[in-house]
Simulated scan of single mutants.
Amino acid sequence: MNELLKLAKEHLRIDGEQDDTSLALFIDSAKEYLTGAGVEEQESQLYKLGILMLVTHWYENRTGVSDDLPQKLTLGLQSIILQLKSW
């Protein structure tokens, strides 16, 4: 199991492997999201937090009716993206 998948499962308190495929998709999508925002993949803790924020949001809102990220997530993620891009 890769590090980000393990971290996401611990954070979301998921036991077992039934959600591994969805979580892997969310992790890959979060990486693409950050890449699209101009952030290169890296091993920093801040990068991992950005991934975890997106994965958590997408996992917990799988049946949401809106594609928009909530304001709190947007502001926190925007701050992380700006900091990562400046490194």
Rank of each mutant, 00 (worst) to 15 (best):
H11R: 13
H11K: 09
E60T: 12
L77N: 01
L7V: 12
V65Q: 05
L23A: 05
K6I: 15
S86V: 13
E17I: 11
T56H: 04
E32P: 06
Y33E: 14
Q45R: 07
E32V: 15
K85A: 15
L73K: 00
Q78R: 02
Q78S: 10
S44A: 10
D20I: 15
L69M: 10
E3P: 12
I81E: 01
E43Q: 13
I27Y: 00
L4G: 06
G50H: 03
L4Q: 11
L84R: 07
D28P: 08
L25C: 07
D19L: 14
K85D: 11
N61W: 02
Q71C: 09
R62Q: 05
Y33S: 15
L25G: 06
E43V: 11
E17K: 08
P70G: 04
V55F: 00
L4I: 14
K31V: 14
S66H: 09
A30L: 04
L25R: 06
L25M: 06
A30R: 00
Q78D: 10
M53H: 06
S86Y: 03
I81R: 00
E3G: 09
L82Y: 04
L7Q: 05
T35F: 04
T21C: 12
E40T: 12
I81N: 04
L4D: 14
A37C: 15
D68P: 02
I14Y: 01
D20K: 06
D68T: 13
L23H: 02
I27A: 01
Q18Y: 04
T74G: 03
G76M: 07
Q78V: 02
Q78T: 11
E3A: 14
I27R: 00
E40W: 02
L77C: 08
M53G: 01
I80N: 01
L5N: 03
W58D: 13
K85L: 13
K6L: 09
Q83G: 07
E10L: 10
Y59M: 07
E17Q: 04
S66W: 02
G64R: 14
Q45V: 15
L52D: 05
E40C: 09
E10Q: 15
A30G: 05
D20N: 15
A24N: 08
F26M: 07
D67P: 08
V39R: 03
M53N: 11
K6T: 14
P70R: 04
K9R: 12
I80M: 05
